[in-house]
């Protein structure tokens, strides 16, 4: 893994400006701005249909923006495909986790980007460096304090919280710029959520920008340095979540008088 690159905090690791996306007559994104610094957890809030998922998909190369720019460290980039986004150092933890239940943690980490020899062969025909991948995976899991009972066991044998933690750790291992988490605690119980929230807080020290999409207000209050609220495809508010302004955030989300 490359060492995290630390830049001046004034430069945003990720900057989305004027993002616009239409599906036919429906305007899903209408000039949205979103900025995230390294070492910062930004919560992306909004009710269903507010445009959060569309925005995330545009950042991760699943969809293309109709208008607007995406900049990383101040330079405009074009993530035209999920693979391109990965190459730019953007990693996503999808709600369905996108884990391979039949494979062990190391194979999950390196699926599609295996450590291989020899280099002169076409990629598919190369041999995998199983031990090196297992070692690197173990190091990442230890650094992030993710407890896995058995590193040789298939991920499908693990609990929901452990699976979530492995998906997050996988993103952290390869992200050099941005980690995006889509509803990371939605499927988890109280104790398991606790572990994953702690893990997200630890991501901050990895030197990446963390964007969390979540409906769980308590979790947002706890981990987010900043909250960006979307409604009907626009950014309608940006504030530091505190217990005092919880009501304000909720009313921004639902579009009440507040």
């Amino acid at each position: 893994m490359t060492a995290p690159i630390r830049t001046a905090p004034s430069v945003f690791a990720l900057s989305v400006r004027g993002a616009t996306k239409r599906f036919g007559a429906v305007v899903a994104l209408d000039g949205v701005d979103l900025h995230a610094r390294r070492g910062e957890v930004v919560a992306l809030l909004g009710d269903n249909g507010a445009g959060k998922s569309t925005l995330i998909k545009c950042i991760t190369g699943v969809l293309r923006l109709d208008a607007g720019t995406v900049e990383m460290d101040g330079r405009p980039v074009d993530a035209g495909s999920p693979a391109a986004a990965r190459a730019l150092g953007i990693e996503t933890v999808y709600q369905d986790l996108a884990l391979f239940d039949n494979l062990d943690p190391a194979a999950n980490f390196y699926a599609g980007r295996e450590m291989t020899v020899p280099r002169w062969l076409p990629r598919g025909l190369r041999l995998v460096r199983r031990r090196a991948m297992a070692q690197a995976t173990e190091n990442v899991l230890r650094r992030l304090a993710v407890g896995v009972p058995d590193l040789g066991a298939a991920v499908g044998l693990m609990s929901g919280g452990q699976r979530q933690a492995i998906a997050v750790a996988r993103a952290a291992a390869f992200a050099t710029n941005v980690v995006i988490l889509d509803e990371p605690t939605a499927a988890l119980g109280v104790r398991e959520s606790r572990h994953v929230l702690d893990l997200i807080l630890r991501l901050r020290t990895e030197g990446v920008a963390v964007i969390v999409v979540s409906h769980a207000m308590d979790h947002v209050m706890e981990i987010a340095d900043r909250a960006v609220v979307m409604r009907r495809g626009r950014t309608v508010g940006e504030l530091v979540p505190r217990p005092e302004n919880r009501e304000q955030i909720v009313s921004l989300i639902v579009g009440g008088a507040g």
Partner: peptide, 24 residues
């Protein structure tokens, strides 16, 4: 031991995830 063989198992385990992981 071969990358292609690992991809065969990855595709069988989770085809959608394999696509997102840029496996052909």
């Amino acid at each position: 031991s071969m990358v292609w063989g690992r991809w065969i198992f990855a595709v069988g385990g989770n085809p959608d995830a394999a696509r997102r992981a840029a496996i052909p």
